[in-house]
């Protein structure tokens, strides 16, 4: 706790951070032939040069455990009272993946559950963790965002196959005060279920159980209406970011770093343009890891903290957008953290 902090200790404060990527690197050259596309076409459309994918048999929980362990180490170890896992790709339809992850991290017995908000999952997870702390249910929460999105992709769909990567990022949040570095600021969350059709995996739920799904109609795969998603993501993230800044009492010129969901390099660039933010204030890692869905913000936070792009005292704006539709944004002043490369 910093000296001079005042106000009630009812806020969530980031005190640990880590990430984990699967070992297998998949290059554009490896994808181009089957997709009838060139490496240049893929980079031009997405800004992505390579991504990490799980091996067959490797699952979301394996990535989540790696990221969770790294975040706990960064936080100096110690117990947590809850494990929240944001994911679109749980290991199983049932049960949730978080209890297994908690058990494998030596945290068996704590509250553990999954949060499903697709690419906005990390920001929704922050709100969930902050709520646990504010309600007195927990003093420390491990929030992990982990995805094995490659397991949802149509191997012949060049509009989705090159975009997504697998990975996991995690933070430890502890009880603290609003004016401490690392305290999560105003949380802006929203959804638009009237546009649910823009981003879907239709089969495998209760509407279209696998036993009734039409074989080979693509319903078992992730599908996305790219142009409308692009428009919605820029408009929704810019509105949410503006609202979060207003809530924090910050002007755009106060923002040192904007860390956004890494959907596509061109979404990030368009968002910076629309907000009027310097593009160099919006770091990206999408070229090397692709769009890791819910995991993208904590993975980028960890990599930016490691390479010095993020420094203690930086005023940081977070914004995410995903299927649902869902979106969210918040602010924090970057704390001094011991982050380890993995």
């Amino acid at each position: 706790m910093t000296g001079g902090a005042t106000g009630p200790a009812d806020r969530a404060v980031v005190c640990g951070l880590g990430y984990w990527l699967p070992e297998r690197v998949v290059t554009n050259a490896q994808l181009a032939e089957r997709l009838d596309a060139s490496e240049e076409w893929i980079v031009g459309r997405t800004g992505i040069s390579r991504r990490r994918w799980v091996e067959p048999g490797e699952a979301t929980s394996d990535l989540a455990v790696g990221a969770g362990r790294a975040a706990l180490k960064s936080a100096g170890g110690g117990p947590v009272d809850a494990v929240v896992l944001a994911t679109t790709t749980p290991d199983y339809r049932c049960p949730a993946t978080a209890p297994d992850v908690a058990a494998r991290l030596g945290l068996n017995g704590v509250a553990a559950f999954d949060v499903s908000a697709v690419c906005t999952g990390f920001v929704y997870g922050l709100a969930t963790a902050a709520g646990f702390i504010a309600a007195g249910l927990a003093d420390r929460v491990l929030l992990i965002a982990a995805e094995a999105f490659s397991t949802l992709l149509d191997p012949d769909d060049r509009t989705t196959q090159p975009i997504f990567g697998d990975g996991a990022g995690a933070v430890v949040l502890r009880r603290g005060r609003a004016d401490e570095p690392g305290a999560i600021g105003p949380l802006v969350l929203g959804s638009d279920g009237a546009r649910a059709e823009l981003i879907t995996v239709k089969a495998g739920g209760s509407r279209i159980p696998f036993r009734t799904a039409v074989p080979d109609d693509g319903s078992q795969y992730f599908q996305m209406r790219g142009r409308e998603v692009f428009r919605q993501s820029v408009e929704r993230m810019s509105a949410a970011a503006t609202e979060a800044l207003d809530g924090a009492g910050w002007r755009l010129s106060d923002v040192d770093r904007m860390i956004t969901h890494q959907a596509n390099a061109r979404v990030s660039a368009a968002l910076a343009t629309r907000l009027g933010l310097r593009r160099d204030a919006a770091p990206q890692n999408i070229a090397d890891v692709g769009n890791t869905a819910a995991a993208s913000i904590p993975v980028l936070l960890a990599q930016a903290a490691l390479d010095g792009t993020l420094e203690p005292g930086h005023r940081v704006l977070l914004a995410a957008f995903g299927g649902g539709l869902t979106w969210g944004a918040t602010t924090l002043t970057w704390p001094g953290l011991e982050v380890h490369d993995t």
């Binding site: 031009g44 459309r45 790219g226 142009r227 692009f230 428009r231 820029v234 408009e235 596509n264 061109r266 368009a270 343009t273 629309r274």
Partner: peptide, 12 residues
């Protein structure tokens, strides 16, 4: 002016 550029052009 590919599929994503026309979206941004329309917005701007």
């Amino acid at each position: 002016l590919d599929s994503l550029a026309v979206v941004e052009l329309s917005m701007v």
